[in-house]
Design a protein around this nucleic acid. Structure first.
Lengths: 345, 345
DNA sequence: CTTCATAATAGGAACGTTCCAAAAATTCAA
DNA sequence: TTGAATTTTTGGAACGTTCCTATTATGAAG
């Protein structure tokens, strides 16, 4: 092989005294090749510092095994968990997926998506940013690349979605809080344009109404989907005339923010105010007080999404059923005991 | 263009009535092409659903702009922050890097690295798993691909490292705790084979000795580098005959674990036991009590790593200076006031 | 031994791009 | 208007694989 050039299939062919076709066949694990020939080739591969050029192969095959995971906020532990869950599922299929973060920025998301396409991605899982325009994904769809959205549902889009049963989760939380004796309830955090929030809020509100809470005793406050958002939401809630005594939070991050804000006001989660989270990140269990939250079975969600793209890739289809994961309420300490009288202060 | 086939540079050439070379030139933003010709081409590109085939280009150019970030634990908020920091720096350079998680598993890491190589990565940033064998990276080095390690230093390796000044961080923490009046100190968490721990512990221990703490009053307990590890380390520490009254934790995750374990024992961080973290993750500031911790300026660290690979790629070199980021102690609430008498219970 | 069927191997074209050398178009000066 | 100088455009080869179609080696049967 040439001194400085990278070694190719031809180099190992020469080294092993066979043709490039033979080497290629060995590389693909074909059983057309006689075992001893294959051994010779494999030895040559090991001797030389050969690295397979997947780009060249993809070019010729007109298909790749690259899968991209495009996540809107890797900094949110829930999404980080989700991402590594999916990665694990892909690993089992012998695929190394690539993760990219879009930092909740649609423009960045466009760039990332473009890059994934150019790189020849064969499948995509996307947890889209807010304000994702439908046409941002249209190009990918019409390129015939399997794509599934996870968690967030896109408006006016026929893309398959993998998400937890948000409506039921909201309902579970409402039921729990009302059973604990609360009569003025809040839903804190999240933006109204998020499908996740609409669904969670819907389940929450419907159940409240069904269980006899009146409309004006159900408060919904929008906010960021992180700790900071939780803090400001709680403050806004408690500054009302008739403040709520309990809240379902958009997600666990918001719930942590709510608990922090409570402490800053000299109040205590559980004792003075009941808080329920959503997602059940690992941290929830260890927090003090341990957070009562709706578990979405993150690992399972990730696995389903992974398997869905994989299946779509195999069947060369661009459509798939939505998948709604079941949820369970993890009752821990953040709602305190059953309440006998209303009112906080 | 053919009905079902993907459109190529030739299709847009035909569409625009120019040659493929012209299209290629336009794609590369060459100023050789007359503006109106370029406009025609760009229009054709916009009309057709053309997507650039970077694989083909890389094949021909024998070089790519793919950069990989291989992280050992994306689930650790610190590394998630680090990853998005690096991503931001690459974005400014017009590059979309790919992230992969190795889940602290050297075998997985080998697979990921192999995949990145095959994909034609032009540069790599790696936060290596424990027990990374030097030869795991040797192949990449000899392939001439720029690679920088971040945070963890590899044994017997000449790869450039970007890391915070761990020794100084440890020293800062020790000094702070001793000034607060503590006389029996612990270093909690982390495994002895981690360079990060060795350095942090070294700074911590040396300063303790220098400031008059005797060897047997400096306790070092190994453990996992996460919350769980922190919990068990604290329990082990307090179950000693002469328990410490303060600790520097391997990182913030461990520190959170320590504080949780304290609560479980009916003790309180700050009041009953001083705890200092390391890393200064965003959560540290909002925790209750707010965590006193050594800030490593995560964003800056990520930026430096990114710029280092970028520079190596440009200069086609495989060597670079180590970069040690400065650290500062963020004094918050987790160490309480100055202590006048020793002893916990 | 041949002959034939089959199992292994080999050679060339193709994938979509870039780059080089060369051709064509344009501009400028005389 | 012409020719030279310059700018703009073009065609073909090359990158490292895979796939298809040969071709050669092997073994079985006559």
């Amino acid at each position: 092989m040439n001194t400085r050039d990278k070694t190719t299939i031809l180099d190992i062919a020469r080294e092993a005294g066979v043709s490039k076709s033979t080497v290629s066949l060995v590389l693909q694990g074909s059983d057309l090749i006689r075992p001893d020939t294959a051994a010779k080739v494999r030895k040559a591969i090991a001797d030389t510092g050969y690295v397979y050029n997947r780009g060249a192969a993809n070019l010729r095959k007109a298909q790749s095994n690259v899968i991209g995971m495009v996540i809107h906020d890797l900094t949110n532990p829930f999404y980080a968990e989700l991402a590594v869950g999916m990665e694990r599922a892909f690993q089992a299929a012998g695929i190394v997926p690539f993760i990219a973060n879009t930092a909740e920025n649609p423009i960045r998301q466009d760039q990332v998506l473009k890059s994934m396409l150019e790189q020849g991605a064969a499948g995509l899982i996307i947890a889209p940013t807010r304000n994702t325009q439908p046409e941002a994904l249209r190009r990918i769809e019409q390129a015939g690349i399997p794509i599934v959205t996870i968690m967030r549902r896109l408006p006016e889009s026929r893309l398959p979605v993998v998400a937890p049963d948000n409506v039921r989760g909201g309902a579970l939380a409402a039921e729990h809080l009302i059973k604990k004796g609360h009569r003025r309830l809040a839903f804190l955090g999240g933006h109204a344009d998020l499908s996740v929030r609409r669904e969670r809020l819907q389940g929450f509100r419907d159940t409240c109404l069904k269980l006899g809470i009146s409309e004006q005793d159900i408060l919904a406050i929008e906010g960021e989907t992180n700790r900071i958002g939780g803090m400001s939401c709680l403050n806004e809630a408690l500054d009302r005339d008739e403040p709520p005594t309990a809240a379902l939070c958009f997600n666990d991050a918001v719930a942590f923010g709510v608990m922090i804000a409570l402490r800053k006001r000299g109040l205590e989660a559980a004792r003075d105010f009941a808080v329920v989270g959503f997602d059940d990140v690992v941290e929830a269990e260890h927090y003090v007080p341990a957070l009562t939250t709706v578990s979405v079975d993150t690992a399972n969600l990730g696995e389903r999404a992974a398997h869905t793209v994989l299946r779509m890739m195999q069947t060369r289809t661009t459509r798939a059923e939505d998948q709604i994961g079941s949820v369970t309420l993890m009752v821990r300490d953040s709602c305190g005991p059953i309440r006998t009288m209303g009112g906080v202060q």
